[in-house]
Design a protein around this nucleic acid. Structure first.
Lengths: 141, 141
DNA sequence: CTAATCTTGACCATTTTAGTCAGGTATGTA
DNA sequence: TACATACCTGACTAAAATGGTCAAGATTAG
């Protein structure tokens, strides 16, 4: 199971981005300064977000990024998937002689991890960027 | 967030153990062979399980381990906690000048990870070793 | 033209993971 | 008492993942 800072940074950056309208692109430099994330690292992350059509890029001076979708339609699942955060629990090695497939029976914890994965994914599928923005406003008071 | 094979092995071994009565201790060697887990690694894991009073050890010939509690009272939370699997999402660095605490506002994703953590922990608190044993019987047919 | 910005890919130090290895110590059995 | 079985402990390590940095370009507004 993986949920690392790359995923967290992606979410932070997108929430930041979502606060602006779609006519003035936001530069990574600004996000970097506001969120305290290394610019070079942000570039890697946004490259992936763009490939997954979550953001659009505008090149050149005063360029930057804008959201490519309505914040309500960007689910956390989409974001994590884009930056390769697999919400996957430890898998039984499928090729191995040992464990899950070497024996006639299924590995005894197999169903457990399946269940957990569904549990977590459901959580992420039901959370959108918009939820986070609202949530943030509330707690900022 | 961490959920690695150490946690999975612990669960596999305990489910294995739970299939036997508490009068005949089960040796790690047997578990090692049945589950395909390195004996040396199992010893590390069981050392921790013992410290957390999840299993009892019997030394000497024909020794081994037995459960120290009713399978119904051993929750997955207990097991993961015992082997240091922290069900923790990526934290904002508390000391850092950047991110969460360097600014006057809370990091914008802070609440999200809190929520997720609760979500996952709830899942593990509600699953006991007994649930896994039953589940395993069903799917074995 | 040039400065700002996105784009791409290679590189790397550190930490974590998933163990191995090498010795113990305790105890039942012959 | 000897010995085999099994627990116990700590040090060590190869490989992978993490969280970046660095360098060199391509694009476009002004």
């Amino acid at each position: 199971m993986k949920l690392t800072s790359k995923g967290r940074y992606a979410v932070m950056a997108l929430v930041d981005l979502a606060k602006f309208d779609n006519f003035n692109p936001v530069s990574l430099r600004d996000i970097s300064l506001r969120q305290g994330i290394s610019l070079d690292y942000l570039e890697q992350i946004f490259s992936k977000l763009k490939k997954n059509e979550i953001v659009k890029s505008i090149r050149g001076t005063h360029g930057g990024y804008v959201l490519n979708k309505n914040p309500n339609d960007i689910k956390l699942t989409n974001i994590f998937h884009a930056v390769d955060e697999k919400v996957k629990t430890v898998q039984c090695k499928k090729e191995s002689k040992k464990g899950c497939n070497g024996k006639s029976t299924k590995c005894i914890t197999h169903n457990l991890w399946d269940e957990l994965e569904i549990h977590i994914n459901t959580f992420f599928e039901n959370k959108s960027l918009k939820d986070l923005i609202n949530n943030n406003k509330e707690t900022r008071v």
